[in-house]
């Protein structure tokens, strides 16, 4: 047990190191995220010239939302991740199968390490720039701060599981990219990444809330800006945890089916 956790930790450390090896990429990403923070901030602010509140979000909350999403882009890794699909297609996946650790577990540990790096070098700096240039809202107290960090970590797990899942069709399909693109569009829309789900018409918001996507972006932000508070925070965290567990389980089942196809048909 301890030894297994130690292995996870070491894998996570290497996941961190892998991204730390490309500082120029980090800098470029940081620059882009910040730039878009300004652009999106000004566009959304224009909405508040006519009204003072939309779905519980006022101008300050909306600005905070904008900068938080920019900080979470890399940390949660909303956009494309095809590492697994590429390994499946190239056949390199077979080498993962001869290791005494489940590839899902190894990939999760690796992604947590990656997200730690991105949180520190692509998340915090973006949020700091936003906080220096605009009046952003901060969580109400230490408990809210803590809840936010837990929520962000759960968001990473949900996002990871979803990404892992949309890579699995590569076991069957040559054109795995099509599915991945569709998945990315769905997740950036329904996660509340583009605009807060509170801005959606009710029917669309209801659809969004029936998917795991809000658990990737919207929930941690709601906790941060105080759109979700008190005991509701516990409910929100439970929803995230449930999605994380459910999706990971689904990953395991689908991955096993993929492996079965591989070992029977030879890929």
């Amino acid at each position: 047990m301890i030894a297994a956790l130690r292995a996870d930790l070491e894998i996570a450390r290497r996941g961190y190191a892998r991204y730390a090896a490309y500082p120029v990429a980090t800098l470029a990403g940081l620059f882009t995220n910040t730039l878009f923070g300004f652009m999106r901030g000004f566009v959304l602010l224009a909405l508040f010239e006519q009204r003072s509140e939309i779905g519980g979000y006022d101008a300050a909350a909306t600005l905070t939302y904008t900068w938080l999403t920019q900080a979470l882009i890399a940390t949660v890794f909303i956009w494309g991740w095809l590492d697994l699909a590429i390994r499946i297609r190239s056949g390199d996946i077979v080498t993962d199968l001869v290791r005494p650790i489940h590839p899902l577990r190894a990939a999760l540990a690796n992604d947590l390490g990656r997200s730690a790096y991105h949180a520190v070098f692509r998340g915090v700096p973006v949020l700091l720039v936003g906080a220096l240039m605009f009046d952003l809202i901060a969580p109400a107290g230490p408990l809210e701060w803590f809840a936010f960090f837990v929520s962000a970590a759960l968001a990473v797990v949900v996002s990871f599981a979803f990404r892992f899942l949309y890579n699995i069709p590569a076991f069957w399909l040559l054109d795995f990219r099509g599915i991945a693109v569709l998945a990315m569009i769905l997740s950036s829309l329904f996660s509340g990444f583009v605009i807060p789900i509170a801005f959606f018409p009710d029917w669309l918001a209801a659809i969004a809330h029936a998917t795991p996507f809000p658990a990737m972006v919207q929930i941690p932000i709601d906790i941060f800006v105080g759109a979700v508070r008190g005991p509701q925070i516990a409910v929100a965290l439970a929803v995230q945890a449930a999605w994380a567990a459910g999706l990971l389980l689904l990953c395991r089942v689908c991955f096993a089916l993929g492996v079965r196809r591989l070992v029977v048909q030879g890929g």
Partner: peptide
């Protein structure tokens, strides 16, 4: 992406 020695070290734990 890792130095060779890191790969070995990772295998030690795995």
């Amino acid at each position: 992406d890792l130095p060779l020695i890191d790969s070995f070290d990772l295998l030690r734990h795995i």
